[in-house]
């Protein structure tokens, strides 16, 4: 671990009841990089992602061992406020989940619950977030419309804008394009390339081409273990392990 590392995971184990879902993961993630997490269904990649902003805290009977250091500070330290962690590590879910509020209120939500009251500030931040999420031009004339009226791809970009509005440092994305058509997927992928200038992005994907296209580093998970972690170029051309190669070349999964 060195000072450039945004997130350092140390010997992380995640248990759900008696079952261990994530096994002894150690990984260092540098700032302003896109990290793709790949692996077959049920390999624990989503579970791992959710340990990074303590979303698993919500699951009854879940237990975490090990450390997740965010800028060197363990987010599982009892002194640390989970609300603070989640504001620093934002998340976009697999299934876009806009709230049935107006487009504007969706983006303003994080600010409002964070106690921001200044109207001008909120309006400014809403516009900026929507621009950053490449959605502004499409919705600027109908910010008061219910967000549920947006198309699937727009909804997912709205969720990204909503996450950006509170200016997190890290953005976790759990298969953000899996429910989108190719055009919408392309938009989200382009967006991720833009966003990495400001954010560290960790993205779970079941789509290997997508991981190859958008990520700087790739982590391959299997059966809850981190099998291999390397630069994407290296990983997709000369993987260290045979099983990684087999997965990448589509021999199973």
């Amino acid at each position: 671990m060195d000072s450039q590392d945004k997130i350092s995971v140390r010997n992380l184990n995640f248990y759900y009841g008696q079952v261990r879902r994530v096994t002894n993961v150690t990984i260092d993630i540098k700032a302003n990089q896109v990290i793709g997490i790949i692996g077959p269904s049920g390999c624990g990649k989503s579970t791992f992602l959710r340990t990074l902003n303590r979303m698993n805290d919500l699951i009854l009977g879940a237990r975490v061992e090990g450390m997740v250091l965010l800028d060197g500070e363990d987010i599982y330290d009892p002194e640390v406020d989970v609300v603070d962690v989640r504001r620093r590590v934002g998340m976009v879910f697999q299934k876009s989940n806009p709230f049935p509020k107006s487009i504007y209120e969706n983006v303003a939500y994080g600010l409002r619950i964070g106690g921001v009251r200044e109207k001008d500030f909120i309006a400014e931040r809403v516009e900026k977030s929507l621009r950053d999420a490449a959605l502004w031009e499409e919705v600027k004339d109908r910010l008061d419309d219910n967000a549920m009226r947006l198309s699937g791809g727009q909804q997912q970009r709205l969720c990204i804008a909503r996450a950006l509005a509170i200016e997190p440092e890290v953005l976790l994305m759990d298969e953000p394009a899996s429910a989108l058509d190719p055009t919408a997927t392309l938009k989200v992928e382009e967006l991720i390339q833009e966003l990495k200038k400001k954010y560290t992005i960790i993205i779970v994907t079941h789509n290997m081409q997508q991981a190859a296209r958008i990520s700087d580093f790739t982590a391959f998970f299997m059966l809850g273990e981190l099998v291999e972690f390397d630069e994407t170029k290296q990983m997709f051309t000369k993987p260290q392990k045979k099983i990684t190669e087999e997965y990448i070349t589509g021999r199973f999964g």
């Binding site: 609300v83 879910f93 994080g110 619950i113 909503r162």
Partner: peptide, 23 residues
């Protein structure tokens, strides 16, 4: 009320009561 409303609120740093009250 779908669980995703609660989850979405938590992911934006809402406390439990904030999530319930606002979402």
């Amino acid at each position: 009320v779908p669980a995703s409303y609660r989850e979405g609120a938590f992911a934006l740093g809402a406390t439990k009561w904030q999530a319930i009250y606002t979402n």
